[in-house]
Simulated scan of single mutants.
Amino acid sequence: MTDTHTDSAGPPASPRALARRRRRESAARFWAQYRRQRAGVTGLILLSAIVLLALCAPLLADGSALSVTQATGGRMDPPSAGYPLGTDETGRSVLALTIWGSRLSLVIGLTATVMAVLIGTVLGLTSGHFGGWYAWIALRLSDWFMVLPGLVVAIALLAVLGRSVATTITVIALVSWAGTTRLVRAQTLSVQARPYLERARALGAGHWHQMTRHILPNVMPLVLASATLLVPTAILTESALAWLGLGDPNVVSWGSILNRAWSSGAVSARAWWYLLPPGLAILLVVSAFMMVGRALEAVLNPRLRGGGR
């Protein structure tokens, strides 16, 4: 009787090789299912282009173009050969500002999402696994944060803590973790009811082993899909805070560009080239993340699988 994991012309594969092969097969199945989601593929291409643009910002636009003292254009000049997207109120290139603003907007959105997902995953996993008074406190805390208007809380916290990139990231994470906690806790309770968890407990598996080796791997796919949908919310929140004048005044983001355009009278001056590029950039990146997130959710959630739209 031959071993199913042996090659016809070689020794039996090692457990590590088998694990790598299973991961490759799983990744191939995932990509085959994801490619059927046409909107998801479109969003992935668009998102890749935006990330590439942000990474190549130093190559596409000199950092000196952000300096007010080195600006060479006129005040709110319309698009021209030298300035394809016109200039701002100080004569800086709107194209350079938009390209460099993509870096901060993406960094804040991604970092705040990672922090929020980390907090929500830890609280949801532990509260679902241990239960009792700890779960009651975690649920009441998440309920409180879900009921509170996130933007209002973020404005209040920034007014107290001060304006900086680190503060903005922390504040956005604090108002965004509650939904992940609810999702992870519900999935944890579902996984814990499965037979293999009962066998693991019967064999003497401790809490750490159960959570990290059995529960977390089953929870992570939904967490990933949820995180992808949380990034555009974080970017919109950062843009709204910056537009309200609560962003770091020493850095450039899409929201801060809109804030300066509004305060400098771009609307009354009909300087559409100052308002449209950062607004469209926010719309594109949010749409790309939403399309990718919905596609991931459809692939990872069997109940939503099937449509390629």
Rank of each mutant, 00 (worst) to 15 (best):
T181N: 02
R182G: 09
A186N: 08
A186S: 03
A186H: 02
T188N: 05
T188K: 03
L189G: 05
L189N: 00
Q192P: 10
A193S: 14
R194C: 09
Y196M: 14
Y196I: 15
A200G: 08
A202E: 13
L203T: 15
A205Q: 08
A205W: 04
G206D: 10
H207D: 12
Q210W: 05
M211P: 10
T212L: 12
T212N: 07
R213M: 08
R213P: 05
I215H: 05
L216E: 09
L216P: 08
L216H: 07
L216V: 08
L216G: 11
L216C: 09
P217G: 12
P217Q: 14
N218S: 14
V219C: 08
V223D: 00
V223P: 06
V223Q: 06
L224V: 12
S226N: 15
S226V: 10
L229M: 06
P232E: 07
A234R: 02
I235N: 08
I235W: 12
I235Q: 11
T237S: 07
E238Q: 11
S239M: 03
S239D: 02
A240G: 11
L241C: 08
L241D: 06
L244M: 14
L244N: 09
G245D: 01
G245Y: 08
L246K: 06
D248E: 01
P249T: 02
P249A: 03
V252F: 05
W254A: 11
G255T: 08
I257E: 03
I257S: 06
N259H: 15
S263I: 09
S263H: 11
S264C: 04
G265E: 05
G265I: 10
A266G: 01
V267F: 13
V267D: 10
A269V: 03
W273L: 01
W273G: 03
W273I: 07
L275E: 00
L275F: 01
P277R: 05
P278C: 07
G279F: 03
A281Q: 08
A281M: 14
A281C: 14
I282E: 01
I282T: 02
L283R: 03
L283D: 07
L283G: 06
V285D: 06
V285H: 00
S287Y: 15
S287T: 13
M291Q: 14
M291H: 14
V292R: 01
V292N: 02
